Computed example of a mutant assay.
Amino acid sequence: MSAFVRSLPWRVLMVFVAAASLVACNDFTECAPVDAAVAALPERLSDTGLFADSSMTVPGEDVKAFAPQFPLWSDGATKRRWIRLPAGTRIDTRDMDHWQFPEGTRLWKEFTRDGVRVETRLLEKAGPHPEDWRAVAYVWLPDGSDAVATPAGQRNANGTPHDVPSASDCFGCHGGTPSRVLGFSAIQLSYDAPADSLDLDDLVASDLLTAPPAARFTVPGNDVERAALGYLHANCGHCHNQQRPESDGPRCYEPRNSLDFRLRVGRLGSPGETPTYRSAKGDDFEPGRPDDSKMVKRISKREEGWSMPLLGTEVVDADGVALLRRWISEMKRE
């Protein structure tokens, strides 16, 4: 972002971003103007309720850390995540695949790249309806004293290769599921999380779910199959799934195909029962033939408008490629 743009007052900047978002599009991107509701978010991260004091390191007492068992690849960035539910509320889990969060819920995700704390993203439920979410990224000041809302995003933030997304880009991913929340779900939390992080058992024990499940949900298959299915769920399922909510306006990415990489709690009996196998086997991947699989080809390169994932990454995930190659290589041909 230019020095001129950074110097603009907060609400003037919001108008600038809304206008710029309309012309920053390509064949794969329909950038929605930044909603005016984003302007109501605090200008400083220190005012969002994440941290307990001015140290900007210790989360508030009502802020809880969590970590999904299948993380999203973000070009090697280290991430920390937190959630805060309004006091006395619970998550609506009647649809176990698509949790609905109470109004006032806030989630934060912090990115550190090459040892530099670069940004912290805020996602807030601003109203009673499933689509009533708003989001913005806060870019950290060089001295680490605070982070400032940056609705226009920022390339190569704080001297790193990390690109901070604009507020208009956030729902290119988050708009792809009825929940709008990624990484905090029944499947993602069904494991023994670190001691300082929430998992599904903690949520049940704390009576934070309206319809608590009787047990955790286990991704089927051997270690390689589970890891591959989880990887695709986390990195591809928010765009490639057949339960994408309808939208009354443009989104930053609208895939139009039959692929479905999102895991479902009711389709975990075997690997072959998952939407991934049902929708992509023989089309996106060829059992036993990773070199002939479109999936492997598209995640092994970074070519604008063609490589996958299309959004949020500029660096090939070598470990992810190796995992999917092994998974396809070991898959039995019919």
Rank of each mutant, 00 (worst) to 15 (best):
W82A: 11
A65K: 13
M96K: 12
R106Q: 10
K64M: 14
I91Q: 02
D97K: 07
Q69H: 06
W82Q: 07
L72D: 03
P68K: 05
W73M: 01
T105N: 08
D97T: 00
D75F: 11
Q69K: 14
I83V: 15
D62I: 00
G76M: 11
D92C: 11
R90K: 14
P86H: 07
P68A: 00
G76H: 03
Q100Y: 00
T78F: 04
L72H: 03
A77G: 02
P102A: 03
T89P: 10
F66A: 01
S74G: 03
R90D: 01
A65N: 09
P86V: 02
R81C: 09
F66N: 06
R80H: 12
F101V: 08
D97N: 14
A87C: 02
W99A: 05
R84Q: 14
G88S: 10
R106V: 12
D95S: 07
V63G: 08
G104I: 08
W73G: 01
D62M: 11
A65W: 02
F66P: 04
E103I: 01
P102N: 10
H98V: 01
D95R: 08
Q69C: 09
T78R: 15
T93A: 14
M96W: 08
F70M: 02
A65T: 05
A65M: 11
I83G: 07
I91D: 06
Q69D: 01
D75P: 05
D95P: 01
F101T: 05
T78N: 15
A77M: 04
E103L: 03
F70G: 03
T105G: 08
A67Y: 02
T89S: 15
K64S: 14
K64C: 13
V63A: 09
A77D: 15
G76W: 00
D75E: 11
D97A: 00
T105H: 04
W82H: 12
K79W: 00
P68Y: 02
R94A: 13
A87E: 15
D97Y: 11
R90P: 06
P71Y: 05
D62G: 10
P71E: 10
W73V: 06
A77T: 13
E103A: 08
R94V: 14
E103Q: 12
A65Y: 00
I83W: 05
V63C: 10
D92G: 01
I91T: 10
D75R: 10
Q100E: 07
F66M: 02
